[in-house]
Structure formats: C-alpha cells, structure tokens
C-alpha cells in the first residue's frame, strides 16, 4: 500500500448552525493526483482552506507528512495552494508577484522566478501588469505562486473554473507535468468530473459537507463501465452461483446490487440460474454510466445540480 501523505480525521467546520464540512475523512497517497469532486457549496473550498492552513477546523484533525496538531506549523511551507481565484497584486507584473513570495521564503536563487514562469508557461509576459492578464494567465500565475518554495503537496481549488477549452488543457498539462517531473502530490477540486477524470488517480466525492465516497481511478472506471447490474435482496447468496457459472469479474456494490463486468450477453442465463437456485431477483439489466451521471446519481440526481 502506498504511503499516506495526507489524511483528515473527522474534519469538521461549522459556521453558526451550519456544518460546511462534516466529519470528512480524506486519505491521499504520496504521488497521487486526488480529485476532490463536489457541487458548488458542497464544502470543497472550506475543506481545502483547512488543509492549506487558511481556516481552522471546528473539530477533527489533519495529519500531513506524519505531523498533526500544533506540529503542522513545521511543515506548512511544504504545502502550496491556490484557493478560489488567484490572489494577485494587479498593479504588479508576474515577476514582482512571484518575487514577493520568494522574499517571504528567503529564496534568492538565480533564475528561480524565471524557471517558475517557464513551468507555468508565462515566460513571455514581460512587464505586463497582472490586472491585464486573461483568466487563464492568472490561474497559471496562481499555480506558479503555489510552486514557490517547491512544495511537496499542491492544493488547487477549482483551477479550471471559468477557463476556455485551451486554458483547461494548459492547466491540465501543467498539473500532469508537476506530478511527473517533480513527483508532487496534488489535491485538486472541481465540480467537473469529466475533466478531473483525465488526470486524477484517486477521487473523493463530497456532498453537503460529507464525504460520500473515496475511490481509485480504476474503481471509478469500473463503476462507470458497461456491466450486468443485478438487483436482489441478499447478494451474498448469489455469489456461489456466480462462481459456479465461472464469473470472476464482479463486485458487490451494496446490500442490493451486484455488478458483473464480463460476459454481458449471458444475463438471461444468469437470471435463470439464480431463479433455479431460489434466489429472488428484483431486476437484472445490462447498463453503463457516464462519469457525470455516476456523480449526479451519487449526489442526489441532476435536479439538484
């Protein structure tokens, strides 16, 4: 099992009577790109703010790099973040914005800022004030700012929000490159599952402040792929029948569902064999799901989106 770099234990944030984040337990492996998915207002940003040290949890704990509680202060510099929109001084250029953060970190290396500008694709912006930047350029500079100090964990909150397709692709490339070249662990939130699915290796789905599911890329793909979906009361009773029929690639999803990912044309045979064995079946069908549909079903349907 990969080393866990970050985990939250019962992380909660309450504003008045409203729990924005409610007992969230996230587990992020070292080197992972963790896609944090949730609708607007689901609690993603609040969660990321707490992880980034910008907000204090009402209760619960964050453990990073083996540190927790007050000791977290010792490793805060290892976490770079871009939360909500990029915070930039509009009357300064990209270099000056980066220079300010370099001063804070005591970084005086030659070409350090130029290298960051190159990584985020802003080498040629010159003295242009950031207030004249496009949203994509601002987002990239925001990522650049998060990279100052060479963090091991990068927290990006909706970095593709509002970007055009080209901008989305550019940001995606940067994130991929950072993971591959610098071995960074990246926590990235979005409400666009389709986009996250192109880069994320692990997923956490949050809804109304609660973490609904944590799953790997493989698990997500398998749940969204074509399958025989069997609906019945006691799935465990059906498992010997499946084994006897030679089905190997199946998964018990919950107390009522079994998903079978092979021999999709044999659903009728399966139905018959289960009936013969006296196992009542509520439903059986061959189905598949789009990523977005999977997410929407999990979070209460499109009508709430």
């Amino acid at each position: 099992m990969s080393e866990i770099l970050l985990q939250t234990i019962g992380l909660t944030k309450q504003y008045g009577h409203h729990k924005a984040v409610d007992h969230v337990n996230i587990h992020i492996k070292k080197g992972a790109i963790y896609g944090f998915i949730g609708r607007n207002g689901a609690g993603k940003t609040t969660c990321l703010k707490m992880i980034s040290g910008l907000a204090k949890p009402t209760s619960g704990e964050i453990e990073m790099f083996g540190y927790k509680g007050k000791d977290l202060g010792r490793i805060r510099t290892r976490v770079g973040c871009l939360i909500e929109s990029p915070g930039l001084y509009g009357n300064m250029d990209a270099y000056e914005n980066l220079k300010i953060k370099c001063k804070l970190f005591g970084i005086h290396k030659d070409n350090y800022i130029e290298e960051i500008l190159r990584v985020v694709g802003l080498s040629d912006v010159g003295k242009k004030k950031t207030k004249h930047f496009s949203l994509g350029m601002k987002q990239r500079l925001g990522i650049g700012l998060a990279l100052v100090g060479e963090p091991d964990l990068l927290v990006l909150d909706e970095p593709i929000n509002g970007l055009d397709p080209q901008g989305i692709a550019e940001v995606r490339d940067i994130i991929q490159k950072l993971r591959d070249e610098r071995n960074m662990t990246i926590l990235i939130s979005s409400h666009i599952l389709e986009e996250l699915s192109k880069i994320a290796t692990d997923y956490g789905i949050i809804h109304n402040g609660s973490l609904l599911q944590e799953l790997t890329r493989e698990e997500l793909m398998s749940r969204c792929s074509e399958r025989i979906e069997v609906i019945l009361d006691e799935p465990e009773k059906a498992l010997p029948i499946l084994d006897a029929l030679g089905f190997a690639n199946y998964q018990v999803i919950d107390k009522e569902h079994i998903h079978i990912f092979e021999r999709l044309s044999e659903s009728a045979v399966l139905n018959m064999e289960l009936a013969k064995a006296g196992i009542p079946i509520k439903g059986i069908q061959v189905t598949s799901e789009e990523l977005e549909a999977y997410f929407l079903n999990l979070t209460g349907g499109a009508q709430n989106a």
């Binding site: 980034s52 910008l54 805060r76 770079g80 929109s85 915070g87």
Partner: peptide
C-alpha cells in the same frame, strides 16, 4: 489591507508559522 483585498494573503497566509 492590500494583501487581504487582492487575495494575495491566500498565497502566503497558510504557509507562515504565525
């Protein structure tokens, strides 16, 4: 308030010990 109003504080606020 420049760092607060511009949002720049979000880039640094979490990374300082105090």
């Amino acid at each position: 308030t420049a760092d607060i109003n511009s949002g720049y504080i979000k880039n640094i606020g979490g990374q300082v010990r105090n």
